[in-house]
Lab assay of single mutants.
Amino acid sequence: RKWEEIAERLREEFNINPEEAREAVEKAGGNEEEARRIVKKRL
């Protein structure tokens, strides 16, 4: 699934746990840019 690939990239890029990465992607509706913004806000 594409969402899992996005979550994996976010996890590696921001050094967050898989659960946090998945939550961000879900919140963003699968949009990678939006997920990235969500993760950055949390850091």
Rank of each mutant, 00 (worst) to 15 (best):
Arg1Phe: 11
Arg1Leu: 12
Arg1Asn: 14
Arg1Cys: 08
Arg1His: 14
Arg1Glu: 15
Arg1Val: 13
Arg1Gln: 15
Arg1Ser: 15
Arg1Gly: 14
Arg1Lys: 15
Arg1Trp: 06
Lys2His: 13
Lys2Gly: 15
Lys2Ala: 13
Lys2Glu: 13
Lys2Trp: 13
Lys2Asn: 15
Lys2Tyr: 12
Lys2Leu: 14
Lys2Arg: 14
Lys2Ser: 13
Lys2Cys: 06
Lys2Phe: 13
Trp3His: 09
Trp3Ser: 05
Trp3Lys: 08
Trp3Val: 07
Trp3Met: 10
Trp3Phe: 11
Trp3Pro: 06
Trp3Thr: 06
Trp3Leu: 10
Glu4Arg: 07
Glu4Asn: 07
Glu4Tyr: 06
Glu4Met: 06
Glu4Pro: 06
Glu4Ile: 06
Glu4Leu: 08
Glu4His: 07
Glu5Arg: 03
Glu5Cys: 05
Glu5Pro: 05
Glu5Phe: 02
Glu5Ser: 04
Glu5Ile: 05
Glu5Asn: 05
Glu5Gly: 04
Glu5His: 04
Ile6Tyr: 03
Ile6Pro: 01
Ile6Ser: 03
Ile6Lys: 03
Ile6Ala: 05
Ile6Asp: 01
Ile6Thr: 05
Ile6Val: 09
Ile6Arg: 01
Ala7Asp: 02
Ala7Tyr: 06
Ala7Ser: 08
Ala7Ile: 15
Ala7Pro: 01
Ala7Glu: 08
Ala7Asn: 02
Glu8Asn: 13
Glu8Lys: 12
Glu8Val: 11
Glu8Asp: 12
Glu8Leu: 11
Glu8Ile: 12
Glu8Trp: 04
Glu8Met: 13
Glu8His: 07
Arg9Glu: 05
Arg9His: 07
Arg9Cys: 05
Arg9Ile: 08
Arg9Ala: 09
Arg9Gln: 08
Arg9Asp: 06
Leu10Asn: 00
Leu10Thr: 01
Leu10Lys: 00
Leu10Gln: 00
Leu10Trp: 01
Leu10His: 00
Leu10Val: 05
Leu10Ser: 00
Leu10Ile: 12
Leu10Pro: 00
Leu10Tyr: 00
Leu10Gly: 00
Arg11Val: 15
Arg11Glu: 13
Arg11Met: 13
Arg11Tyr: 08
Arg11Cys: 04
Arg11Asp: 03
Arg11Gln: 13
Arg11Leu: 15
Arg11Gly: 11
Arg11Thr: 12
Glu12Met: 11
Glu12Val: 10
Glu12Asp: 14
Glu12Asn: 11
Glu12Ser: 09
Glu12Pro: 03
Glu12Lys: 12
Glu13Ile: 06
Glu13Ala: 05
Glu13Asp: 12
Glu13Gln: 06
Glu13His: 05
Glu13Ser: 04
Glu13Tyr: 05
Glu13Gly: 03
Glu13Met: 05
Glu13Phe: 04
Glu13Asn: 03
Glu13Pro: 00
Glu13Lys: 03
Phe14Leu: 08
Phe14Arg: 01
Phe14Glu: 03
Phe14Trp: 03
Phe14Ala: 03
Phe14Pro: 01
Phe14Ile: 02
Phe14Ser: 03
Phe14Lys: 02
Asn15Pro: 11
Asn15Phe: 09
Asn15Glu: 11
Asn15His: 13
Asn15Trp: 08
Asn15Met: 10
Asn15Ser: 09
Ile16Met: 07
Ile16Glu: 02
Ile16His: 01
Ile16Thr: 05
Ile16Ala: 04
Ile16Lys: 01
Ile16Gln: 02
Ile16Asn: 02
Ile16Trp: 01
Ile16Ser: 03
Asn17Met: 11
Asn17Ile: 07
Asn17Glu: 15
Asn17Ala: 15
Asn17Val: 08
Asn17Cys: 07
Asn17Lys: 10
Asn17Trp: 07
Pro18His: 13
Pro18Tyr: 15
Pro18Ser: 13
Pro18Met: 15
Pro18Gln: 14
Pro18Glu: 15
Glu19Pro: 04
Glu19Asp: 13
Glu19Lys: 10
Glu19Thr: 11
Glu19Gln: 13
Glu19Trp: 09
Glu19Arg: 08
Glu19Gly: 08
Glu19His: 10
Glu19Cys: 06
Glu19Ala: 11
Glu19Ser: 10
Glu19Leu: 09
Glu19Tyr: 06
Glu20Ser: 08
Glu20Phe: 14
Glu20Asp: 11
Glu20Asn: 05
Glu20Leu: 15
Ala21Met: 02
Ala21Gly: 03
Ala21Tyr: 02
Ala21Cys: 04
Ala21Ile: 06
Ala21Glu: 01
Ala21Phe: 02
Ala21Pro: 00
Arg22Asn: 09
Arg22Ile: 13
Arg22Ser: 09
Arg22Pro: 01
Arg22Trp: 15
Arg22Tyr: 14
Arg22Met: 15
Arg22His: 10
Glu23Asn: 11
Glu23Asp: 14
Glu23Arg: 11
Glu23Thr: 11
Glu23Leu: 12
Glu23Met: 11
Glu23Ile: 12
Glu23Gly: 08
Ala24Asp: 03
Ala24Asn: 01
Ala24Gly: 02
Ala24Pro: 00
Ala24Glu: 02
Ala24Cys: 05
Ala24Ser: 05
Ala24Phe: 05
Ala24Arg: 01
Ala24Tyr: 04
Ala24Trp: 02
Ala24Gln: 02
Ala24Val: 11
Ala24Leu: 07
Ala24Met: 06
Ala24Thr: 06
Val25Asn: 01
Val25Thr: 06
Val25Glu: 01
Val25Arg: 00
Val25Pro: 00
Val25Gln: 00
Val25Ala: 05
Val25Phe: 03
Val25Met: 06
Val25Leu: 10
Val25Tyr: 03
Val25Cys: 03
Val25His: 00
Val25Ile: 11
Val25Asp: 00
Glu26Val: 13
Glu26Tyr: 07
Glu26Asp: 10
Glu26Gln: 14
Glu26Trp: 05
Glu26Phe: 06
Glu26Met: 10
Glu26Lys: 13
Glu26Ala: 13
Lys27Val: 11
Lys27Thr: 10
Lys27Cys: 04
Lys27Asp: 10
Lys27Phe: 07
Lys27His: 10
Lys27Gly: 07
Lys27Gln: 13
Ala28Asp: 00
Ala28Asn: 02
Ala28Ser: 10
Ala28Gly: 06
Ala28His: 01
Ala28Glu: 01
Ala28Pro: 00
Ala28Tyr: 01
Ala28Thr: 06
Gly29Trp: 10
Gly29Arg: 15
Gly29His: 14
Gly29Gln: 15
Gly29Lys: 15
Gly29Ser: 12
Gly29Asn: 15
Gly29Asp: 12
Gly29Val: 11
Gly29Leu: 13
Gly30Ile: 02
Gly30Ala: 03
Gly30Val: 02
Gly30Asn: 03
Gly30His: 03
Gly30Met: 04
Gly30Trp: 04
Gly30Lys: 02
Gly30Gln: 02
Gly30Tyr: 05
Gly30Thr: 01
Asn31Ile: 11
Asn31Pro: 00
Asn31Asp: 14
Asn31Gln: 08
Asn31His: 09
Asn31Trp: 07
Asn31Glu: 08
Asn31Ser: 10
Asn31Lys: 07
Glu32Ala: 08
Glu32Phe: 12
Glu32Cys: 04
Glu32Trp: 14
Glu32Asn: 04
Glu32Asp: 04
Glu32Thr: 05
Glu32Arg: 05
Glu32Met: 12
Glu32Leu: 12
Glu32Ser: 05
Glu32Gly: 05
Glu32Lys: 04
Glu32His: 11
Glu33Thr: 10
Glu33Ile: 10
Glu33Tyr: 08
Glu33Leu: 10
Glu33Gln: 12
Glu33Gly: 09
Glu33Asp: 13
Glu33Ser: 09
Glu34Asp: 09
Glu34Val: 11
Glu34Met: 10
Glu34Ser: 07
Glu34Ile: 12
Glu34Trp: 04
Glu34Arg: 09
Glu34Gly: 07
Glu34Cys: 03
Ala35Gln: 00
Ala35His: 00
Ala35Lys: 00
Ala35Val: 02
Ala35Glu: 00
Ala35Phe: 00
Ala35Arg: 00
Ala35Pro: 00
Ala35Met: 01
Ala35Asp: 00
Ala35Ile: 02
Arg36Lys: 09
Arg36Thr: 05
Arg36Pro: 00
Arg36Trp: 02
Arg36Ile: 10
Arg36Cys: 04
Arg36Ala: 06
Arg36Asp: 01
Arg36His: 05
Arg36Val: 09
Arg37Ile: 12
Arg37Asn: 14
Arg37Val: 09
Arg37Pro: 01
Arg37Leu: 11
Arg37Phe: 03
Arg37Ser: 11
Ile38Ser: 07
Ile38Lys: 04
Ile38Ala: 09
Ile38Asn: 07
Ile38Phe: 02
Val39Ser: 03
Val39Glu: 02
Val39Thr: 06
Val39Tyr: 00
Val39Ile: 15
Val39Trp: 00
Val39Asn: 01
Lys40Phe: 03
Lys40Asn: 08
Lys40Ile: 15
Lys40Trp: 03
Lys40Gly: 09
Lys40Thr: 11
Lys40Pro: 02
Lys41Asp: 14
Lys41Glu: 15
Lys41Trp: 03
Lys41Gln: 15
Lys41Tyr: 03
Arg42Phe: 09
Arg42Met: 15
Arg42Glu: 12
Arg42Ala: 15
Arg42Leu: 14
Arg42Ser: 14
Arg42Asn: 14
Arg42Asp: 10
Arg42His: 15
Leu43Glu: 07
Leu43Trp: 06
Leu43Gly: 07
Leu43Val: 09
Leu43Met: 12
Leu43Thr: 08
Leu43His: 09
Leu43Ser: 07
Leu43Phe: 09
Leu43Arg: 07
Leu43Tyr: 07
